[in-house]
């Protein structure tokens, strides 16, 4: 090997690069194997087998898709109901969070007095948002619109359910939705600051109004960040510790009858549902991205 050193300098450098690269990557590779890959496989095993905790370790008995079937079809636990409610929560909240964050970022993107104060106020919830804080602050003592604006609710009730359910949901959980916006607002603000003012000036000279500037300049510039925020939001809301599925799975981990297995099967169904939502998000962005470039 050392004889060919002169001829092979290129490949030696490559090899040394590869070794260094893997050395730097090593912590993550170990972590990935221990804390992600192995648990994922183990989780599949758990969901397909009956688990017996014996004195010599864990014993498995093959059960096939029994737990999946049980989770899906067992009416008592109503997992399907919880899944529907949590997935619709993700679907209602994500677009609202994105639109709110974008609006607030647009409002904050300028020079005016107390800008730093408002920016700080809107980011505040991120600092304190934990499961217990939310349950103490947002469930018992939140703003109740049904007392303040009964007319609004009468109007909503007259609409078809497909429309009124999401609106009602958003109104009922307005503060919670706001509290999920902090990081996204900052991402959009950072993005808005990157759009060059010369573009807006050129557009003004061509006679474009604020509305047109937003759709033709601001939005296309932000679209990669909107996608990032959308993915972040879906995952953030999906992991929300007080969601219907999350609490149900937590409750069933030590289920007397089907310890570990039942909850594992549920978590895999939930994983698939979340993956479907993410795929839908990507498809929506692809669709709009193509439409925008065609125009």
């Amino acid at each position: 090997m050392s004889k060919n050193n002169k001829l092979n300098t290129g490949s030696t450098i490559q090899r040394r690069n590869a070794i260094s690269g893997y050395l730097f990557l090593a912590p993550w590779l170990i972590g990935f194997a221990l804390f992600v890959a192995y648990p994922l496989i183990h989780s599949i095993v758990l969901s397909l087998n009956e688990v017996l905790l014996g004195p010599d370790g864990i014993e498995y008995t093959w059960q096939g898709f029994f737990y999946f079937d049980h989770a899906w079809n067992n009416a008592r636990d109503n997992f399907r109901g919880a899944l529907t409610s949590q997935v619709s929560m993700i679907c209602y909240m994500t677009p609202v969070i994105l639109v709110f964050s974008l609006l607030i970022a647009l409002l904050l993107n300028g020079k005016f007095k107390m800008r730093a104060f408002f920016r700080g106020a809107f980011f505040m919830p991120v600092i304190i948002m934990s499961g217990p804080t939310i349950s103490k602050l947002l469930t018992q003592y939140t703003v109740n619109f049904s007392d303040g604006a009964p007319l609004l609710y009468d109007f909503l009730a007259s609409l078809p359910a497909a429309l009124s359910t999401p609106v009602q949901y958003v109104l009922d959980n307005l503060v919670l939705i706001f509290w999920f916006c902090g990081v996204q607002i900052l991402i959009f603000l950072a993005g808005l600051q990157q759009v060059g003012s010369d573009l807006y000036e050129a557009a003004s000279i061509d006679g474009a109004g604020a509305w047109e500037k937003f759709w033709k300049i601001t939005l296309p510039h932000l679209s990669p960040l909107i996608l990032i925020s959308a993915v972040y939001t879906v995952i953030d809301v999906a992991n929300y510790s007080r969601g219907a599925v999350v609490t149900m799975i937590d409750k069933h981990i030590f289920n007397q009858q089907y310890i570990y297995s039942y909850a594992s099967a549920m978590s895999w169904i939930y994983f698939l549902a979340e993956a479907l939502v993410l795929v839908a998000v990507l498809l929506i962005f692809k669709f709009f991205g193509r439409k925008a470039t065609r125009e």
Binding site: L40, N239, Y260, A263, S267, Y270
Partner: peptide, 26 residues
Amino acid sequence: KKLWLVLVVATFMVPTLVLRIPRYLM
């Protein structure tokens, strides 16, 4: 390298819920 980069991103998408029980057992 590409594979690892993809996996770095992919781990973010795995719900912590799926990993919780096997991690607990570990």
